[in-house]
Simulated scan of single mutants.
Amino acid sequence: MNTIADRHISPTFHGVEEVDDRRYYLIGDARLLSCTTVTGVIAKDALLRYAANQAVAAVFAELPSIVIASRTKPCGNTGRRCDHDNTTRCDNCACRECKACIARWLSERHIEHSARRADEGTRTHDVIEWWSYHGQIKPYDADIAPYVKAFEAFVAEYGLTPESFLASEALVINKGAGYAGTTDGVIRFRADATPAAAKLVSRVTQIQAKRAVKLGLTVDLLVDFKTREGEGPKFYPEQALQLTGYRHAPVIRIKGDDVDHPMLPTDGGMLIQLRPDGVTPRLAVTTERTYRRGFLYALGLTKWLIEEGAAAVSSHTFVLPETVAARARKAAKQSAAEPAPAAA
C-alpha cells in the first residue's frame, strides 16, 4: 500500500448535519463543528452590504411591480411554506404580489444569490478536483467558465501538475478541539517550475529566488480556492482563520478506508481567488499563534453561543425559590396522585 504522501486524499465521513445554519460533521460517535461554522461567528460587514445591495438592485429592476404591491393588502399567507413544489399553486400559497410578500422577497433576495454563488463554487471545486486526479478539465457549465479559466491560468503560472496535489478535497479532523472540515488540498510548489513559483518559494522560505531554484527547493501549502464574482482581489481575515483550522487539525482521512492518518506537514497556507478578471494567490498567516489566539477563540465563542448563549438572557435561568407553603401544596398534590396501596 502506498504511503499517505503518495496518494490523493478525498473526504469520507458518516454524514453532515445542518442545524440552524450550523454544520456538524458526524464522525463515528463524534459530532464536530465545521470550520466554516466556527469562522461564521465573526461579524461580516461585507455580507450586510451585499444583502442591502441585492435588495436595492431588485427594487430598481422590479419597480412597477413594487409600486403596485405597495397598494395591495397582505394576502395573509406570506409566511406559509407549502409542501408541494413551486410549479403548483394552492389556496394556502403566498400570493407573491402583495405588500407583505414583496417585502419578504426583497429581504431574502440575498439568500437566493448566495445559494447560486455557493453552487457555482461547488461545481468549480469539482472541476479542480477532477483535474488533480486526471490532469484534464472535465465538461463544465458555461456559468463557471470564468473561474475554470482562472484556475487553468493559475496552474500554468506556477507549473503545476496533478502530482503537485498531495491532497485534494481532504477531510481534516480534530476531535480533541471538537471541529472538522474539508480543505481543498495541499499543493507542492517547486522553485524550478516557473518564475512565479520561484518567487513564491522565496517568500515562504525567505531564501532568494535564484538560490531557491539552484537548490531545487519546494514548499507544501495547504490551499483554499475561493470564487469571487466581482473584479479585483478581496480577502478577509476569517478566511485565514478557516485555513488555520484546517492546517492545525491533527488527523486527515483517505477516501474509502475511514482510517485516520497524521496530518500532512505543510509550510503554510494560501488562498487562491478565482475571478472573471483573473486569479490571485495570497499567502495567509496560519501559525500556531493564529490558531490559539484566533481560531480557538472563535471556536470557544461558537460553542458558548450554542450551549449557553440563550440561557444567558433567559427568564428561566434565575428562578424564584419556592415558599414553604408552595412546597407543602406540591407535596400534597403528589401524595394525592399516588395510587392507594392494594389490600392484603
Rank of each mutant, 00 (worst) to 15 (best):
R7S: 11
T12I: 12
F13W: 11
H14C: 09
H14M: 07
V16E: 13
V19C: 08
V19K: 11
V19E: 12
D20T: 06
D20V: 06
D21C: 07
L26S: 08
I27N: 01
G28A: 08
D29Q: 14
S34Y: 01
T36Y: 02
T36N: 06
I42Q: 01
I42E: 01
A43N: 09
R49Y: 06
Y50M: 09
N53H: 11
Q54C: 14
Q54E: 15
A57S: 13
A58C: 10
V59G: 02
F60L: 14
L63F: 14
L63W: 10
A69Y: 00
A69Q: 01
A69L: 00
T72Y: 02
T72L: 08
K73P: 02
R80C: 07
R81N: 11
R81L: 12
C82Q: 09
D85M: 08
D85T: 11
D85K: 10
T87F: 12
C90Y: 10
E97V: 11
K99F: 08
A100L: 08
A100V: 08
A103Q: 08
E108A: 13
E108Q: 15
H110A: 13
H113W: 05
A115K: 10
D119H: 11
D126V: 08
V127T: 08
W131T: 05
S132Y: 07
G135R: 09
Q136R: 14
Q136E: 15
K138Q: 15
Y140C: 06
A142E: 15
D143C: 05
V148M: 08
K149I: 04
A153I: 04
A156C: 06
E157H: 11
Y158T: 04
L160E: 03
L166S: 01
A170P: 05
V172T: 12
V172S: 04
N174K: 09
G176N: 14
G178L: 10
Y179A: 04
T183Q: 07
T183W: 01
D184S: 07
I187A: 02
R188N: 03
D192P: 00
A196S: 09
A197N: 02
A198K: 00
A198I: 00
V201Q: 01
R203T: 10
T205E: 11
K210F: 09
T218I: 09
V219T: 05
T227K: 07
R228M: 12
G230F: 13
G230A: 15
P237Q: 12
E238C: 09
Q239F: 13
L243G: 03
V251E: 12
R253E: 04
L264H: 05
P265I: 05
P265C: 02
D267N: 14
G268P: 03
R282F: 07
R282W: 04
L283C: 09
L283P: 04
L283M: 10
V285C: 13
T287M: 08
E288C: 02
Y291C: 02
L296I: 09
Y297S: 03
A298H: 02
G300H: 07
T302P: 00
K303L: 04
I306R: 10
E308P: 00
G309M: 10
A311Q: 14
V313T: 15
S314M: 08
S314Y: 09
S314R: 08
H316Q: 14
H316A: 14
T317F: 13
L320H: 12
A328P: 04
R329S: 12
S335N: 10
E338K: 13
E338N: 09
P339W: 03
P339H: 03
A340G: 03
A340L: 13
P341F: 01
A343H: 07
